[in-house]
Write a protein that binds this DNA or RNA. Structure first.
Lengths: 331, 331
DNA sequence: CCGGCGATGCAAATCGATATGCACAACGAG
DNA sequence: CTCGTTGTGCATATCGATTTGCATCGCCGG
C-alpha cells in the first residue's frame, strides 16, 4: 500500500521516468503510442505526483500563506472564503495562520510561511510595520490588507473607511445630533486608529462636538464594547451618539445601552462598522458602515496572483475599495 | 538577496553542510567550539532551513489538511480556530479547503492534500462515505467529523445530537406543545438527516405529533429557512413548534414568522441547533441546542495528533461530545 | 551513399535538506 | 605496543520529482 512514484509508472509502461514526466507535462514531444501506454499505467496505478518533490524542483509550491487576525470575528471568515475561492481555481491552497494581533505570533507565522516556500503571503498587519514585514519575507509576493499610510512596501488592498465614517457622521448631523463619541479598537496599528482619525476629521468638518472623554479604546470584542459602553454611558454628560470601530463592539455597546435602560435610537444613536451578517439580525437592526469583505478577499487574491505572475519588478499597486453607510434602526 | 542555504552557512563557519545539520539537529555530537561558530553563522546570515527540502527528505510536512463545508456558517470558524490553536503549538499549519458539500470538490481537495503530503486530514464529509474517503487518502491519519453510523474507517469526533434534540422535544412537551415540525438540511449525508431522525424518535417517545408535511429539507442557509418557513407556516394546519437543523435556518424561519405576523414563542415556538454567537443576539433570543464547536475542533486536533504519533495500527477511536439545550426566548 | 535534421527516449544533474558509512585522531586499558 | 573506543568531521546516498545534454533511429535531399 505504498505511494506510487513516477518510477513505478515508468516500469509499468516500459519507459524511463523522464519520458513519463514529458508525457504528463507535454514539455517535450512523446509519441502517441507511448503516451497512451503511460497514461494507462498512470490510471491503473492511481499515480499522483508528489507535490513536495515537485515543489522542491520547480521552486513553486502553489500555496499561499494567509495571516488573519482573529477568525472568530465574523468579518474574517468572509474574507477567508473570498481569498480561498479566488485562489482555488488556479490550484492554490491557503495555509492559514491566526495571529491574534500579537507581534510574536505575526513574526513567527511569517517566518514559517517563508520557510515553507509559499508562493505569496496575504496579511493584515496589526503589530508589524510594512517595512518590517517586507524585511522578513524578502522579495516574496506580498499583499497587505492595511490602511497604513506612507511608503509602499507591497501591494495593498484597503477600504476607504474615511468616506464611510464621514457618511455616518453626516447622517447623525442630518438627524440633528451635534455630539458624538467613538469606541475604537486597541491603540496602535489597528484599523480602529484610522477610523477614529476619520471620525475626528468628519466631526470637525461638520461641526459635531466630540469631547475627549467620549473616546475609548477597547479590544475588538463584544465584551470590549460592553465595558466601554458602561463607562461612556455613565458619564454625567454622555454623548447622544456613539460610532464604533466595528460591529462587534457596537453589539456590546447595545448591551450596555439596554442595561442602562436607554432606548435606541432616540436616547442613544449607535453606528457600527463592517456590516457583519449579525448586524441586521439584532434588535434594533444596526446602522453601520459596509465593509465589503468579499471584495477585499477577492481583491487580495487578484493582487497576489498578478504579482506572482508578473514578478517583483513591477510597481506596487493600491486597491482602495469604497465603503458606504447602510441606515437601519439603531441610528 | 537570494535565500541562504545550509551550504552558505557551512562555508561561513568553515565546516561541511553535514556538520551544520548535526549541530542544529543535535542528532550527532558536535564540538562546542564549532557549534558556536555554526550558530553564529546561522545568526549572521539569517538562515532558516527550507522546509520543502526537509519535508521531502524526512517524509513529514508538519501540515494538515482541514476540509470544511462552508466557512460562511458561523459555526465553522470556531471549529477552524480551535483546530488551528490545537495544532499550532506543535508546529503544524493547516491547509484549509472549502468543499461546499460538493462531492467533486471534496474528492479533488482530498487528492490534492494527499499529493501535498500532509501529515493528516480532518474532514467533515458531506457527500463521500468514510470508506470512499479512506480509499482516497490511503493509510494517512484521518479524523472525521461525522455522526455517520457503521464501520469505523478512521478516528471520529462526533456530537451527541440525539440527546440535545431529545431535550428540545422534551422542552416543547413540558410546555404543553404536542405538535412539532422540523426543517432539516439537504437530503443525504448531512448532519441534518441524523438530527431529523433523532427528532422523530424523541417525538414518538414523548407522544408528540409530527405530520409528514411539517418536515422540510432546505440548504443550511437563512434563505433556506425563510423559504421552508413560508411553506410550513402557510399550511392550514401548521405546527405549533418547529425545530431547525441549525441556527441559520432558524433565523430564516423567524424571518418567515415575522412576515406572517406570528409572535414567538406563543404562536410559534422555534428551536435551533448549534448556538452560534448570533443566537442570543436576535430577537427573540433563540432557544437552541448547544453544539460545542470549540470542543469539537480541539478534539479533532487531539485525535489527529495522537494518530500521527501512534501510527496507523492502533484501533480507531470515537470521541462523542455532549450537546444540551439552552432555553432562551424563542421556545 | 552520405550528411543533416527531426523525432524519440534515456542517463544524469538538480532542487536543499537529512542520514549513513567511513576516515582519522586522541586516549585509555590490557 | 596494540587494540578498541570515543569524539569529530566529511563524502556520499537519499527523498521524488523536473530538466538538460546526449545518443539513436529513420527519413530525406543532394
Amino acid at each position: 500500500m505504498k505511494r506510487v512514484h513516477i518510477g513505478d509508472v515508468a516500469v509499468r509502461a516500459g519507459v524511463s521516468p523522464t519520458t513519463v514526466s514529458h508525457a504528463l507535462s507535454g514539455r517535450r514531444p512523446v509519441s502517441e503510442a507511448t503516451r497512451e501506454r503511460i497514461l494507462q499505467a498512470v490510471d491503473e496505478l492511481g499515480y499522483h505526483p508528489n507535490l513536495v518533490a515537485k515543489s522542491l524542483r520547480i521552486q513553486r509550491t502553489k500555496s499561499v500563506g494567509f495571516l488573519v487576525v482573529d477568525i472568530s470575528n465574523p468579518y474574517y471568515p468572509t474574507v477567508v472564503q473570498a481569498v480561498h475561492d479566488g485562489l482555488a481555481d488556479q490550484g492554490y491552497v491557503s495555509l492559514i495562520g491566526i495571529t491574534y494581533g500579537e507581534p510574536a505570533a505575526e513574526e513567527m507565522l511569517l517566518r514559517d510561511m517563508v520557510a515553507r516556500n509559499v508562493d505569496g503571503i496575504i496579511i493584515q498587519p496589526m503589530s508589524l510595520t510594512p517595512a518590517e514585514i517586507r524585511r522578513i519575507v524578502g522579495p516574496l509576493p506580498l499583499v497587505l490588507i492595511s490602511d497604513h499610510e506612507g511608503e509602499l512596501y507591497a501591494d495593498r488592498v484597503q477600504t476607504n473607511d474615511c468616506e464611510g465614517i464621514a457618511a455616518a457622521v453626516r447622517h447623525l448631523s442630518d438627524r440633528g445630533i451635534r455630539e458624538a463619541g467613538f469606541i475604537s479598537g486597541p491603540e496602535g496599528r489597528s484599523p480602529g486608529t484610522l477610523r477614529l482619525a476619520s471620525f475626528r476629521a468628519a466631526a470637525q468638518a461638520l461641526g459635531v462636538t466630540v469631547a475627549e472623554e467620549w473616546i475609548d479604546h477597547v479590544p475588538f470584542t463584544r465584551a470590549g464594547g460592553l465595558e466601554a459602553g458602561r463607562r461612556l454611558l455613565a458619564l454625567p454628560n454622555r454623548p447622544r451618539a456613539i460610532i464604533c470601530a466595528n460591529d462587534i463592539i457596537a453589539v456590546g455597546l447595545i448591551d450596555a445601552a439596554r442595561e442602562a435602560g436607554l432606548s435606541l435610537p432616540d436616547d442613544l444613536a449607535v453606528i457600527g462598522f463592517d456590516d457583519i451578517d449579525t448586524a441586521n439580525l439584532i434588535t434594533p437592526h444596526l446602522t453601520t458602515v459596509v465593509n465589503p469583505a468579499r471584495d477585499v478577499g477577492a481583491a487580495c487574491a487578484r493582487a497576489l496572483l498578478r504579482r506572482i505572475e508578473r514578478g517583483p519588478d513591477e510597481a506596487y499597486t493600491v486597491d482602495a475599495l469604497p465603503t458606504h453607510l447602510v441606515r437601519r434602526d439603531s441610528a
